[in-house]
């Protein structure tokens, strides 16, 4: 036979305050299991503020805008939600960078001549490092982010934001470049990844330069300098001297040097100089 527990406000109060004995607790919880009035009595002891606060949280969750595909993928890969949001919200031109990268790689492929696979590999290796350099150009800076003034005034370090975006750009470039490399791998084997260290060197050099000049200018300088260098070396020696085994450590060293310069000058990203 079920005996109903008579409603007892002081017992409910002590239950919510957490000071009831085991027997009392069991009594109250059993009563709540079957009596809406007991549930109401206990519920009334919880501060309204707390209930409103949590309701707002529920509403915030249910009304949250749906995440896009890129953002969901990033979270699935394990990125923190707020970092994924930062990256996904990179203002403006994300799409145009993807398109530009794909075009750049296809240009390389289109230039590939089945009779001269060495030549097409050369073109690919020359162009692939430009992909992250272009990405950096569109990923950061007052020219790119209309809300730059407001972003600068936040505790998020401009340098940290830059690094997050640069890493994202590099990671995506590796994917694009990897795909491109696979498509012309054929007989070239490991050489198709010879663009990666140059890419790293060029990207860090671009970032380091952007502590002194606008990001777009810096990208133009490194991209231009690179292409000229590739052309000169190709004419003087052959297509692969630039990418060969002796050259690779030089790129690694250049990347490290540029990284050090970037780190030492990182304060340049923390404020804005306005030419009024």
């Amino acid at each position: 036979m079920m005996i109903d527990l008579p409603l007892d406000a002081s017992l409910a109060q002590r239950y919510v305050a957490g000071s009831t004995t085991a027997a009392e607790t069991m009594r109250v919880e059993r009563a709540m299991d079957s009596s809406a009035s007991w549930r109401g009595l206990v519920g009334a002891q919880v501060p309204a503020e707390r209930l409103e606060h949590n309701l707002a949280g529920v509403v915030a969750e249910l009304d949250a805008p749906k995440r896009g595909f890129v953002e969901r993928s990033m979270i699935r890969v394990g990125l923190h939600d707020h970092v994924a949001r930062l990256l996904a919200a990179t203002p403006v031109m994300r799409r145009s960078w993807y398109i530009a990268s794909v075009l750049v790689l296809f240009f390389g492929l289109a230039a590939s001549n089945p009779d001269n696979t060495n030549g097409s590999l050369g073109i690919f290796l020359a162009i692939a490092p430009l992909v992250p350099v272009l990405g950096v150009a569109v990923a950061y800076g007052p020219g790119i982010d209309p809300a730059h003034d407001m972003t600068v005034a936040t505790p998020l370090s401009g340098f940290r934001l830059l690094l997050i975006r640069a890493v994202a750009v590099l990671a995506t470039s590796v994917v694009f470049g990897g795909i491109g490399g696979v498509l012309i791998a054929q007989s070239h084997g490991i050489r198709v990844v010879a663009w990666m260290l140059p890419a790293l060197a060029l990207t860090t050099a671009t970032l380091a330069l952007s502590t002194a000049v606008a990001t777009r200018t810096a990208s133009a300088i490194t991209a231009g300098g690179w292409l000229i260098g590739v052309a000169v070396v190709a004419r003087a020696a052959d297509d692969f001297t630039m990418f060969g085994a002796p050259a690779q450590p030089a790129y690694a060293a250049a990347a490290l040097a540029a990284g050090i310069v970037l780190f030492m000058r990182r304060d340049a990203f923390e404020s804005v100089e306005v030419a009024s």
Partner: peptide, 13 residues
């Protein structure tokens, strides 16, 4: 939302 993240509001809800 973006600016809130920049202001270190990391918890989504």
């Amino acid at each position: 939302d973006y600016l809130a993240i920049c202001k270190e509001h990391h918890d989504r809800r």
